[in-house]
Write a protein that binds this DNA or RNA. Sequence first.
DNA 1: CTGATTAGC
DNA 2: GCTAATCAG
Length: 269
Amino acid sequence: MNKHTLYTISALIIILGVYGYDYFLNENEKAEIVSEGTSIKKDTNEYFLPTSTTNQVIHHNGYSLSYSEPHEQAEWVAYELKKSHLSNTNHKRPYFEIDNTVKTGAANWRNYRNSGYDRGHLCPAGDRRYNKSAHDETFLTSNISPQKHDFNSGIWNKLEQKVRYWASKYDGVFVITGGILTKNMKTIGDEAVSVPNQFYKILIDNNTGKTKMIAFLMPHKESNKPLYRFVVSVDTIEKLTGIDFFPELDDVIENKLEASSSYKGWSFD
DNA sequence: CTGATTAGC
DNA sequence: GCTAATCAG
């Protein structure tokens, strides 16, 4: 065998090793490896990920999250909602599954049974309807938080629909959402899943030329108020959560945008 | 859209 | 335990 042939065969073995390994991993294992930083997501999503106060960031295909073990839920879930993601396809609702990529053990969905609380999506199933696997991926227990049904199907649902409206109008938005996790919260189930007293949602639009942000902070109760009444500054949510949002943004821009509680530039029609 | 619950195998 | 059908805000 000559040298050239040897090099070619060696190269093929290396390529097979790299891609073959990836091919045989299931989705959970892939997510785990990404969370360990041995693989890097090259899309724009990663740019806008907040810091983690719990040191457990997990990347799924359709969203990323930071899991809080003491509260048995995510402190934030982040994802890009592109205009192209918007879809009217109906998928059959799957079962909730324990997220096995959470090393400390994600909550069992049974904690919610007979609790009086919904398994409220953080990344809504309605935002991941572009294909079945993306849709089903939102039914992991790392993506849910206890929510009162009238809140979830009421004002919170209105906000989620407004996000989809903005994603369409502004050619995509980046979304970060979660419950405000504090000490001494009410809990449900054997694993003591915390029930947040407030929920937040932060949006950034970096697609229409001028970067803009908007943040919402809602008490965990149904309301008939208009959505704009819940607008706060990102700084307000950072103070409540200890999370640094948009750390990769230029500091001058970040400071200015995060201090603002103006909703100028966001159409509420 | 957001969800839960019941009946049946 | 899982699935389909049904119901509710």
